[in-house]
Amino acid sequence: MPDALGFYRTMRFIRRFEERAIELVRAGEIFSGIHPCIGQEAVAAGACGALDPDDIVLSSHRGHGHLLAKGCDPGRVLAEMAGRVTGIDKGRGGSFHPSDFSAGVYNSTGTVGHGAGIAAGIAWAAAKAGEPKVVLSFFGDGAVTQGALLEGFNLAGLWQLPVVYICENNRYATTLPVETAVAGTITGRGEAFGIPSSDVDGQDVEVVHAAVAEAVARARSGGGPSLLVMDTYRYHGHHTFEMLVRLRYREQAEIDAWKARDPLDIQAARIDPADRDRVDAAVEAELDEVVRFAVDSPRPDPADAMDHYYADGFRPRPGVSL
């Protein structure tokens, strides 16, 4: 497991990676925008820190932190977000749907809640093959009102599959407060399927790590799935387009209250200030290289637009025949 400084470093990297990415959105290097995970870094760092390299992560639309914490190459992740051919998916997954099989990140679905059943299938196949792998399936509070998520829970609970479901409850599904969307509780949804479920302080990386490590150990030893509901918060909007439209669905006092429990500050209090300064400087230097790599990477050739649609190389007919 990472030590106290290691957890801090991962979170600091994710925080500054996202802030640099937002600069690239403003500069037009990242087309359209991203879903930043600033404020939720402890969930990604603590959860992925509890995994072995061969374990598998399924991410969501707010997934950059998961990818970085799981060990994807940061330059290739940023290049992916910027639509460059050097990206982990040659630019075709983008910020929204990245996957990187070399790092065990299988999928990031944009259809909220649909990763749960996919996670069950991956876990079932791995278990039947005798591979001691665990699948970590991330989703947000917006997913818990989706039937497909609950169908995934049912299969994972029924067949006792090695999946750890992690709900990042950041309080809002876009603009909708969780209290106005969810009947009952989120943990109650897991318990209904016989899945051990608990609420976790998602702002303290060491608390997150301990909870996930316990669930991973249970899954790996054949004890079946878990559901962990991380209480967390995103400081930014749902998507960077909110910088333009200036939606006001949260009170500033609420945002400030969450920032008072900033995950980086909580962890920084556990390390030597001199170490923190050294890590911060190292992260900045590495991100300079990451940004340079992404921005300097070539953009794709439009002639290749229909590559990779089919495994046998079949190409659809073009949109016009002249």
């Binding site: 059943g117 069950a120 299938g121 991956i122 876990a123 079932w124 169908e151 995934g152 049912n154 299969l155």
Partner: peptide, 11 residues
């Protein structure tokens, strides 16, 4: 929906 996604994962 659950078992169709499950099959995607198994694949």
């Amino acid at each position: 929906q659950g078992f169709t996604n499950f099959a995607t994962g198994a694949a």
